[in-house]
Computed example of a mutant assay.
Amino acid sequence: MILDRFRIDGQVAVVTGAGRGLGAAIAVAFAEAGADVVIAARTEDQLDEVAERVAAVGRQAHAVPADLRDPDATAALAAVAVEEFDRLDIVVNNVGGALPSPLLDTTPAALSEAFGFNVANAHALVRAAVPLMLDSAGGGSIVNITSAMGRLPGRAFAAYGTAKAALAHYTRLAAADLSPRVRVNAIAPGAILTSALEVVAGNAAMRAELEDKTPLHTLGEPEDIAAAALYLASPAGKYITGKVLEVDGGLITPNLAIPLPDL
């Protein structure tokens, strides 16, 4: 049965930024497909809610409240997976972000911070996870969450877009180094209905603009990204590595312009 290829029964995944939004949806999807999960984020109450959803489908979640801006805290999640569940098969680097800012207001420190949070942080977990994947499971799969803004030019996204573009290419480079036993892929979401988009999507005019400028004329849902993550992490995606899957409604230009004046 082709659907069996999407099962990850008995596997163990680490999902960062899993208290809400994309990370929560991915963690629950993995549980529905048969995996136990280590979930990490800053807010313990949110993690507890996700853990309850995981338990409701018959799997286990180990919640780790942590400030994942700290690469050491992020890297430590790999060992937690093995300590709690005796193996590690899948890593999802979902935590990240950076606030929009005009280019000339973006300091070198802000650019460095964005790179650290989005790229160096993911690398810290990859370095910690891969030896444990090889020892406990013989291999594994890594999924990095980038962004459509890592390839689309839009004003005010110098820090965020540059960092996400770097994470996309890091994905390709890591895949080359870690083949054939560890696959590394990425997902580049477009406008997804998470709390991060509430301010925009809650405004009727702005939401209409987002939808109108998206070829599919709708916004994405967290489950759209979760389905893509499951595909890449499961045996269904076993012949894929070093690729960035664009789950963005068909975007070829940004679908919401930040109104910055010309110089």
Rank of each mutant, 00 (worst) to 15 (best):
R181K: 13
V200E: 03
V184H: 05
A63P: 06
E52P: 00
Y170I: 02
T194P: 00
E211S: 04
A114L: 04
V199P: 00
K243G: 05
A24D: 03
E223W: 01
A129E: 11
P153H: 07
S101V: 03
P254V: 14
L251A: 08
L173D: 09
L173H: 10
P108T: 11
E113D: 15
A29R: 15
P259C: 05
L125W: 09
N94H: 01
N203F: 02
T146L: 01
A186W: 01
I8W: 02
S101P: 00
A66C: 04
I187K: 05
V92N: 07
G17E: 03
A35R: 07
T43F: 02
F85H: 09
A229N: 07
A110C: 00
V38N: 04
G202F: 04
L167H: 07
D86H: 13
K164H: 08
A124N: 06
R53F: 00
G250A: 11
V200W: 05
R155F: 09
R42C: 06
V126Q: 03
A27G: 10
A196D: 13
N185H: 12
G190W: 10
L104Q: 12
L216E: 09
G23R: 06
V37T: 14
E246S: 14
P215K: 06
V143H: 03
A175S: 10
V91H: 08
I252S: 13
Y170K: 01
L103P: 00
L104G: 01
N118S: 03
M1P: 05
A168R: 12
L99S: 15
G96W: 05
V95A: 15
L178R: 11
E83T: 14
H123V: 14
V126M: 14
A31I: 00
F85Y: 14
E113H: 09
G150Q: 07
D45N: 13
L260Q: 12
A98P: 12
S147Q: 08
A229P: 02
A56Y: 05
K164D: 08
V199I: 05
G96R: 07
A55Q: 07
V200L: 15
V143D: 02
S179Y: 07
A208T: 13
T162K: 05
G140T: 13
A55P: 00
A124S: 14
P180V: 06
A168I: 00
I39N: 08
A33H: 01
S179V: 06
